[in-house]
Amino acid sequence: GPNNVSMGELDRIAQNIIKSHLETCQYTTEELQQLAWQTHSYEEVKMFQGKPRDVLWQQCAIQITHAIQYVVEFAKRISGFMELCQNDQILLLKSGCLEVVLVRMCRAFNPLNNTVLFEGKYGGMQMFKALGCDDLVSAVFDFAKSLCALQLTEEEIALFSAAVLISTDRPWLMEPRKVQKLQEKIYFALQHIMQKNHMDEDALAKLISRIPTLSALCTLHTEELQAFQQLHPETVNVLFPPLYKELFN
């Protein structure tokens, strides 16, 4: 294997990450397939559109927070993550958890009709109109569509999620070398699996090229939250989940 990592070790890393991913996904692949064509009716979409802005924001903050709790559990099960110092565990999760949620979201996205699973059924972008941040919503939908186009397997989604999370690009890491070693192994494992699964030699490069978009989406989310908070400070302070505030405020 590359850089003195044996194939056996890469395989062990891959198996651990895939298992961690499957154990901590909110929905199984089968559940998602069953739901894929259950879409919100016109009336249901109208109902979302008619909600006050702060109510829909709160609803989305709750959903995101719920998804993040699963990502924390995913991180904890990755071999090596809990061996990092506590500062770095918190830092990686704080800066990467929303990115992983967005990667995972492509599992619950139907690219054939551009709908996403929200509140039990699939619905299009118009469902989020009342949030008042069309740019962010359409950028998130574009991202999901572009990731779906790569036709990743569940194993590749798992390894890519881990690679996004365990990243040396985060500032203020106390043990960047330790993080780097873990990240390199994850990338080798991802590369190995993608070479096996994809005819397209550039598949991995295409996947990696989505990372800057992920980080731009998270920046945009923070900006939209700040703008919303200026108008509805009491909604954020009183009604938003404490974990959401801790991570993004």
Partner: peptide, 16 residues
Amino acid sequence: KEKHKILHQLLQNSTS
């Protein structure tokens, strides 16, 4: 650490 009380707590909880 105080700033990330909940995250800290989630990391401490044993994996079920």
